[in-house]
Simulated assay, not measured.
Amino acid sequence: MHAQIVLFDGFDPLDAVAPFEVLHAGGAASGAVSVELVSAEGPRDVVGGTGGLALRATAALDPARADLVVVPGASGRIGDPGETPDQAAGTGEPNPDDTIPVLLGRTLTTGLPALLKTAMDDPDVTVATVCGGSLVLAMAGLLEGRHAVTHHMGMGMLDATGARAVRARVVDDGDLVTAAGVTSGLDLALYLLEREVGPRIAHAVEDLFAHERRGTVWRAAGPVPAGF
């Protein structure tokens, strides 16, 4: 499984680094996983939204080469939880005064949405998101009718775009797997290791990182609960 983790200006470093570390460790343990940091623009230093921390994208996002594409959220000021996608869209370079909705909305002015649509249209590619990464897909019109989750403060925006918001730590909607708040990137990547490579590898990495996964992975399977 080859994974590409997407960086964009203002990304949340933990959203990207946590899955990278887990998937890289899974690859070291199994020989079955490779992972790289990418951007829509190609190799470049990408400045995150946390204190100007930058990571290096070593390649361009290319869904034709990926089995898994991971989209992080953004890091910045919280902003107005009721802010709509249209209000969130902005222009210019990230700065300390940018809100998270503005940083997420700004991705719509780049080549990222078209590349993510290509990935979403390919049944052989799984697209995964951490925190506000699902809002990037939602604002690009790619989550209509899909089950997904984001940070609890963004669930209203997720609903407003036509997605079917589910309050869970990780939501598995087949070739779309989304995770909630920032630290859920660890749980997301461990679940993907379990699903795609096997539980022994996932358990070994979980033990290595001294992290116990939280929550139940939600899937559209089994009987529908009554009275909830």
Rank of each mutant, 00 (worst) to 15 (best):
G26Y: 02
T109V: 01
D207E: 14
V46K: 02
L137Y: 01
G82R: 15
V224M: 14
A160S: 10
D124A: 15
W218D: 11
R200V: 10
E41M: 07
T58W: 09
H147A: 12
D62Y: 06
K117A: 15
G198E: 03
G48Y: 02
G105Q: 03
A226Q: 15
A140L: 03
I100M: 11
C131G: 08
M157W: 01
D159N: 14
P94L: 10
F228K: 11
G141C: 08
H151D: 12
G154Q: 03
L115K: 03
S30M: 08
E93H: 13
P225M: 09
A138E: 00
V47T: 15
A179M: 10
R77W: 10
V35K: 01
M120S: 04
A165M: 05
T150F: 06
R200P: 00
R164S: 09
A220Q: 15
G73S: 06
E41F: 10
V17M: 15
G215F: 12
E144T: 11
L176C: 09
G26A: 07
S30F: 04
T178D: 06
G174P: 04
L115W: 00
D9G: 09
L103E: 01
E212D: 15
P223K: 12
E83Q: 14
R164M: 04
R44Y: 07
L142N: 00
G92W: 04
V127H: 05
A16G: 08
A189H: 07
L115H: 02
G82F: 09
V170R: 04
T91F: 11
P85N: 05
P43W: 11
A221S: 12
R56N: 11
L23W: 01
V6C: 08
A25S: 11
A202R: 00
T99E: 05
V224L: 14
A220I: 07
E212K: 11
A210Q: 13
R169S: 10
G26C: 08
L143G: 00
M139W: 10
G154T: 00
V171K: 01
L14N: 07
V177P: 04
Y191H: 14
P225T: 06
S30Y: 03
H24I: 00
L104T: 03
E206M: 15
A18T: 12
G79N: 04
V17Q: 12
A226G: 09
A25Y: 00
A3S: 10
H24S: 14
E36Y: 05
M153I: 14
I78D: 14
G27K: 05
R56F: 12
T50Q: 12
A221L: 09
D86M: 02
P225Y: 11
A60K: 12
F228G: 15
G185Y: 07
D86L: 09
S34V: 03
L135M: 13
M155S: 11
V149M: 08
D172N: 13
L135A: 03
T216D: 15
L158R: 01
H151E: 12
D67F: 01
